[in-house]
Simulated assay, not measured.
Amino acid sequence: MRLETAQLRLHAGMPVASHAPEQALLERVAKLPGLQRAAVSRNLPGSWGAGDYTLDLQFHPAPSGAPAGASGLAAALDGIATVDHVAYRAISGGTRAPQLRDGIWRTLMFRVRPEAPDQQVRALEQDLLRMPAYMPGIRNWRLARVVSPGPWTHVWQQEFASADDLLGEYLMHPFHWGRVDRWFDPEFPQCTVEAISHAFCPLATSLIANPNRKEETAP
C-alpha cells in the first residue's frame, strides 16, 4: 500500500457549498486513482507548524511504483491556500487498541539535518519507537520515512484515547524529556532534527489498525 498525508490550510471563508468542510474535502479526493481510504479532520488548538486540517490517504500501490496521488491530489485540492503533502513508507509500528474509536490522531512530520550521520538518524528512530513501551497512553503508532520530494524526511504518528494522553503523559514523560528531546533540541550536541510540523485532531476509528475502511471524517 502507499500512504500519504497532507496538512491543508484553507483560504479564509472558503466556500464549501452546503457541506461541512470535512465532507467537502473528502468529496474532492474521492476519485483519486487507486484510493482505498481517505480520512480528514480539523486540527485542534495547540497544533503548530501545521494547517487547518489533517488529510490521510491510502492507495493501492501504483504498478510503476510512482507516487499514486501526488498530481491528482494537487488538482483535487486546487484552490486551497496551502497543501503540505508527503508520501511515506512505514518502517515500524504497533497496535494495542485496534478497536479505538473517537480518539486523537497525532501527526509529527519532521526533517533531519542533511549532514546527520546515518547512525544518528537510526538512533533517533529507535528512540521514537521505544516510546510506547514507556507510555501506555500511546494506543497505536507508526514511524515512516518520506519517499516523496519535499522538506520532510519522516512521519511519526500516534493514536490516543484522549488529548490528555498526548498533552500530558506523552509530552511530559521523563523518557520524552530525558531521551527523545535531545534529538530535537538545538542546545543538545545530539540534535538531529531541524524542523517539525505537529498536528493533532479528532479520530473516528484507528487509521493504523483498520486500514480498509473507505473514508471517514471525525467530529
Rank of each mutant, 00 (worst) to 15 (best):
S71V: 10
T95S: 13
L124T: 03
L108G: 01
P114F: 11
P63H: 03
P63T: 06
A90V: 08
G103V: 02
S71C: 05
Q119N: 14
R122H: 12
G79R: 01
V121W: 06
D102R: 09
A144R: 03
G65L: 09
G93L: 07
P149I: 04
D78H: 11
P67S: 12
E115A: 10
Y88P: 00
R89T: 15
V83F: 07
Y134L: 09
P132V: 03
Q119V: 12
A87N: 06
V121E: 11
I138A: 02
A116G: 03
A87I: 02
N140Y: 08
Q120C: 08
A144I: 05
M131I: 08
G94T: 05
G103W: 01
L124M: 14
D118N: 11
V146K: 00
V83G: 09
Q99D: 15
A133V: 03
T82N: 06
I91W: 14
R96F: 11
T82I: 00
P67A: 13
A66V: 02
A97K: 07
D127I: 04
R145Q: 13
P136Y: 07
I80D: 02
D118L: 14
I104K: 02
M131D: 03
M131T: 11
Q120P: 05
R96K: 13
Q99W: 10
Q126K: 11
A144L: 05
D102C: 05
D127M: 04
P63R: 02
